[in-house]
Design a protein around this nucleic acid. Structure first.
Lengths: 341, 341
DNA sequence: TATATATAGGCAATCGATTGCATATATAAA
DNA sequence: TTTATATATGCAATCGATTGCCTATATATA
């Protein structure tokens, strides 16, 4: 075996043809005869030829790399979306570079820049909680590089987006709690007014309005949506002394925190207070009681996002009318919100 | 603004010097005068020059890409390791391509190949459960490409490895259960004899031996270590009718499954049976009762793995004496294994 | 003054694949 | 037979940065 890896030139030499012919043969170019193609492919195999993606990337300007930017990869939702994206990308022979912003604006900006520098063919992103200016993404668009957003989106950018219907999900959960007889429903939301929490709040409000239940601002508590924040919010509510018979948290983690606090206060879930979260994190099915939640269709979201992305990538000039795909969420009813009977 | 991106040639032209000089100036080569360097840097900024990593990768043979292969990224342990790796990689201006084998051997082989094809500068991997031949990794080594393994390792490859002391962790958990007065300790392990489960089994056995508690094969149950497998194993044990006063599962997920089954059988944890898992998955702290487990030091593991990797990468010829780094695990004692008092 | 030694840059090849344009052969149409 | 039209392939430039080797000028040493 030769020490260096085989190149198209080596193949060409063996076959007494030129590298161009080999290149075209391997790319199944119609200008090459079937016979030549066969020979080339055979020789390529024989020499254990591996195409050099880097060289091809340089010449063609296509790196076959796509950058995926998520706030944090170690969250079931995001890693599942990534999985969906990867499934599609793999089929199309693209590689996925994952990078995380850790909900940090500076880091997000740097990361977008780094992805651009790595010459990714496009970027799929979900925006960090603390991001409220979008110049770093505008730069991506200015360079004509395909960009798609999912889940955490913004209207300030003219790009295609994939989300679930957060409004609908929240509406259904709230509706479900009302159907269980609840009238004083606490809602845990985020002070960061990013789309998802805004929409969920709207769904909550509309479900109440529709059921002619007055909105009580005392029942809406803001926090950062982590477990600890859920605990803090719940403590606040309890300390306020307002009466409530249900808790709908915009995040499963905060719901878990709330449940812990309720337990510590000997308030029984679901007997005295019904509880529901949002996200269908795996742990929600483990807890005692298991927590009612809304599934975000993460893998389909990843697949749809990737499909939308590749359509854009393949389109003329990376220009396509932008559109928003809204996936239906699924209400998952578990013990935490059900009347014993 | 020119439409195309600026290259070193553009900078050179403006400054009436050659591209080589610009290249050297940007790379802080001592052959270039401070004055020229300053001018080049200034002009680069002015033209908004962004180095083309692809071109540099082609010429230098270094892509600044590192491939990370994990069985599944949406597992807290792995995503945390990845985070640790990313932290270090970022500092050194490397990008991380993540790919998952989904515990599937074929997919693992393909993925390694794909990473090689993407011309990564090296690979950091954790081996899939169903992998028992290693030709795909040998190929990596044959090509002289740095390879480091973490957590799920093998002795069949002469590579540096980073693991936690699974033996020690398991020993300590078992010891702890014994200290709580348990004598009949069930152990849930995997039929796949990959290193981690083998070591944990050894730790369990040695702790028992040391305490002069006879090993009872009836208490050791094999399963795939997912939640459902934990359920199945627990049901088996209960159906067998053997007496037991504790369960030590080699995985948190299986521990969770076991706890569910115990609850369903009205066997109280920790009153009647003490329970411990392994891994310190976040949910173990959420459950009621919270589950005693062993922290695997995932982020440090990621950082150490990356550091080991980059040492290798920077070494002469990618050759270094291989060595195994063993991190100390941490026993996390929670309610599930404690006597009320 | 003549020769050695830095110092600062330039020249041109190179990494491997792609691609616009040119060319040679063969077949078809006039 | 001559001219059009495919068909199959070659030629050489190109993508942008890197790098081994060469050169010109300046300073130092003999």
């Amino acid at each position: 075996m030769k020490k260096g890896k085989a190149t198209i030139h080596d193949i060409a030499e063996k076959l007494n043809i030129t590298a161009s012919t080999v290149s075209r043969a391997l790319n199944d170019n119609p200008r090459i005869s079937e016979n030549t193609k066969k020979q080339v492919i055979k020789m390529a195999k024989q020499l254990n030829y591996q195409p050099n993606h880097i060289a091809s990337a340089l010449r063609s300007g296509k790196s076959k790399l796509i950058g995926v930017l998520v706030p944090t990869a170690n969250r079931n939702f995001f890693s599942s979306v990534v999985r969906g994206i990867e499934e599609i990308a793999n089929e199309l022979d693209y590689k996925v570079i994952i990078s995380q912003s850790y909900e940090d604006f500076e880091k997000e900006v740097q990361t977008v820049d780094a992805l651009l520098n790595a010459r990714v063919d496009g970027i799929i992103a979900s925006i960090g909680k603390n991001t409220d200016t979008f110049d770093h993404f505008k730069k991506v668009l200015d360079k004509g590089i395909p960009l798609i957003l999912f889940d955490r989106i913004t209207n300030e950018l003219d790009v295609s987006q994939v989300v679930i219907d957060d409004y609908q999900g929240a509406y259904e959960v709230t509706r479900h709690l009302i159907d269980q007889g609840c009238k004083r429903i606490v809602h845990l939301t985020s002070p960061k007014k990013i789309n998802i929490y805004r929409e969920r709040l709207r769904g909550y409000e509309d479900a109440l309005k529709e059921a002619k239940i007055p909105l009580d601002p005392d029942l809406v508590e803001e926090g950062n949506m982590q477990l600890e924040d859920g605990r803090i919010s719940m403590e606040k509510i309890i300390r306020k002394g307002v009466s409530f018979d249900a808790v709908f948290s915009s995040s499963d983690y905060a719901a878990m925190g709330a449940m812990q606090v309720l337990r510590e206060h000997k308030i029984s879930v679901p007997d005295q207070v019904k509880l529901a979260g949002f996200g269908n994190e795996p742990f929600t099915s483990f807890t005692a009681p298991p927590i009612t939640t809304v599934d975000q269709k993460s893998i389909p979201m990843g697949r749809v996002t990737a499909e939308t992305f590749f359509e854009l990538l393949k389109s003329e000039n990376n220009k396509k009318a932008t559109h928003k795909t809204v996936l239906k969420p699924e209400l998952i009813i578990r013990e935490s919100s059900l009347n014993k009977s």
